[in-house]
Simulated assay, not measured.
Amino acid sequence: MTPSRQPERRLIASNKKARHDYTVLRTYEAGIVLAGTEVKSLREGRASLVDAFAQESDGEIMLYGLHIAEYGFGSWTNHAPRRTRKLLLHRVEIDRILDKLREGGVTLVPLSMYFDNGWAKVELALAKGKRSYDKRQTLAERDANREIARELGRHLKGHPRRA
């Protein structure tokens, strides 16, 4: 009897600022078309999603602004760090995403990039931009929840309340 293997999922890069700046409506997992040196560079964890965004181009979804550093041992075959990359999604998913994008007020933002069983994947989000007061409200809620958890922990441990 062979032991069951857990699917390997290794994070390459994440876009923490995206969750701060946008309200995530729905997420999608997409494959990404890469060159050989890009994969080697990603395995070293040398990628940045900071300025990345996705848009429709000729009925397909492309990823712009993703920075994958050049591979150190690459030669003339090395890739351009900020080239446009095609995302791999099912046609039904692409059509749904494009319908939402055409409605307006919604954008496609990459949240994270990871290896899933050896395949490079991007987690895309259909997202709405937050206004500054929404961001402040989110921060206030997070601080309040943290304070509640802290007090609950103190209570459960039997420590007296702080003044």
Rank of each mutant, 00 (worst) to 15 (best):
M1I: 03
T2D: 06
R5F: 13
P7L: 09
R9C: 14
L11V: 13
L11D: 07
I12F: 12
I12W: 00
I12V: 13
S14V: 03
N15K: 12
K16N: 09
K17P: 02
R19N: 05
D21L: 06
D21I: 01
D21C: 04
Y22I: 05
V24R: 12
V24N: 07
L25R: 14
L25E: 15
R26M: 10
T27E: 14
Y28Q: 12
E29K: 00
A30E: 10
G31H: 09
G31T: 03
L34G: 03
T37R: 10
E38A: 01
E38I: 04
V39I: 15
V39L: 14
S41C: 01
R43C: 05
E44H: 04
G45E: 06
G45F: 09
A47L: 06
V50S: 09
D51Y: 11
F53N: 00
F53H: 06
Q55D: 14
Q55C: 02
E56S: 09
D58C: 07
G59Q: 04
G59T: 09
G59A: 05
E60W: 06
E60K: 10
I61P: 03
I61C: 04
Y64N: 10
L66Q: 03
H67S: 08
H67F: 12
A69C: 06
A69D: 07
E70P: 09
Y71C: 11
F73V: 07
W76Y: 08
W76K: 00
N78T: 00
N78P: 05
P81K: 02
R82E: 15
R82F: 06
R85L: 15
K86W: 08
L88Y: 08
L88D: 08
L89V: 00
H90D: 13
V92E: 15
E93A: 05
E93D: 15
I94W: 04
D95M: 15
D95E: 15
L98C: 15
K100I: 01
R102E: 07
E103K: 11
G105R: 00
G105N: 05
V106M: 08
P110D: 07
P110A: 02
L111Q: 11
L111Y: 11
S112V: 08
M113Y: 10
F115E: 01
D116K: 11
N117I: 09
W119R: 14
A120K: 02
K121A: 09
K121Q: 14
A127P: 00
K128L: 03
K128S: 08
R131T: 10
S132V: 10
Y133F: 07
K135N: 04
K135C: 04
R136K: 15
T138G: 14
L139E: 13
D143N: 10
A144E: 01
A144Y: 12
R146C: 05
E147L: 11
R150E: 08
R150K: 13
L152G: 04
L152N: 09
R154I: 05
H155G: 04
L156E: 01
G158Q: 12
G158S: 08
H159M: 15
H159I: 11
